[in-house]
């Protein structure tokens, strides 16, 4: 659509009228039937608050937002590792590895995220965390280590919980990454494999030196999209009591009673994060494409 052709037609008028009518009706109902008094003044205080002893500190929403960013970063790295390995398994020459990759991907993609997360959380927190002995390790850690841990993963006493949620999320997203990796490798024309074989290159170096560098280019845009999906799916982790943004929203909505304002703010925060990243990725992609063309 170019702005030159901007004309105000009857369809525009109709659509604007319908939208205005709907929004107006919702606000009218909120006032007249629900007697809701909007009060946005409290919201900034939920991000940062002033503590008499420690100065300005993050409040629930701020901490939650930070936890979501941490989950996204670590979860993204872990999901990329799992997905990379599983994606390579999916196209491997060995039937065993193919079966392994296939069952992982199908299992994850055909169960609801919620059910998957509940089942795995039960396992991870019940079995893996005691095996890794995370809790006593934290108890024994020095204050400096704890500080580093707090910076990287949030409050150390919640670390086992955070790790369980993180692994759940990464296992879940890994299946989608695996499919992206597989599709990327399969998008490389057969001629590349055949050419390498004709030059006497064995399959493994062919994959590493010829196929993967080309596949990387095809894989980056969908991976960026999957990263944004990961941020959105991280909201699910709130249901197993990992204290990220949605969890903070649930707590605040109950404790403060400012239900409408809190949920609108939480939604806006997610939107800013995801939309901002999407724009950033699109820009980077565009610049990369332009550099390649030159």
């Amino acid at each position: 659509m170019s702005w030159r052709k901007l004309r105000f037609g009857w369809l525009d008028a109709l659509i604007l009228a319908v939208v205005a009518g709907l929004v107006g009706y919702v606000f009218y109902r909120a006032q007249s039937h629900f007697h809701y008094s909007w009060d946005w003044r409290l919201i900034p205080g939920y991000f940062v608050r002033h503590d008499p002893e420690r100065g300005w500190i993050l409040n629930l929403l701020g901490q939650g937002f930070l936890a979501t960013v941490r989950l996204a970063l670590w979860g993204g790295l872990l999901a990329a590792a799992i997905g990379g390995v599983m994606g390579l398994c999916r196209i491997s020459g060995s039937l065993f590895l193919r079966l392994l990759g296939r069952s992982y991907v199908e299992l994850v993609r055909n169960t609801p995220p919620l059910v998957f997360i509940f089942i795995f959380y039960f396992f991870l927190s019940g079995q893996l965390m005691p095996v890794l002995d995370v809790e006593s390790r934290i108890a024994r850690a020095s204050p400096e280590t704890l500080q580093v841990l707090a910076l990287l993963f949030g409050q150390p006493d919640l670390l086992p919980n955070f790790l369980s949620g993180l692994i759940c999320l990464a296992l879940f997203e890994g299946a989608y990454v695996a499919e992206i990796v597989r599709a990327g490798i399969e998008s490389i024309p057969r001629g590349q494999w055949e050419g390498a074989a004709a030059l006497g290159l064995p399959p493994r170096p062919t994959l590493a030196k010829i196929i993967l560098p080309q596949a990387l280019r095809a894989v980056v845009p969908p991976l960026a999209g999957q990263f944004i999906s990961l941020i959105k799916d991280s909201a699910l982790i709130s249901l197993i009591s990992i204290q990220e943004l949605t969890f903070a929203g649930t707590e605040l909505a109950v404790s403060s009673g400012r239900v409408f304002e809190v949920w609108l703010t939480v939604a806006a925060l997610y939107f800013l994060l995801c939309f901002g990243l999407a724009r950033l990725f699109r820009r980077l992609e565009w610049r990369l494409a332009r550099r390649r063309d030159r």
Partner: peptide, 18 residues
């Protein structure tokens, strides 16, 4: 660009009672 869960909460806690 927003999680499904948050949308569900928005509809259920904000729009539905109104």
């Amino acid at each position: 660009n927003t999680p499904m869960l948050v949308q569900l909460y928005l509809v259920y806690f904000v729009l539905a009672p109104i």
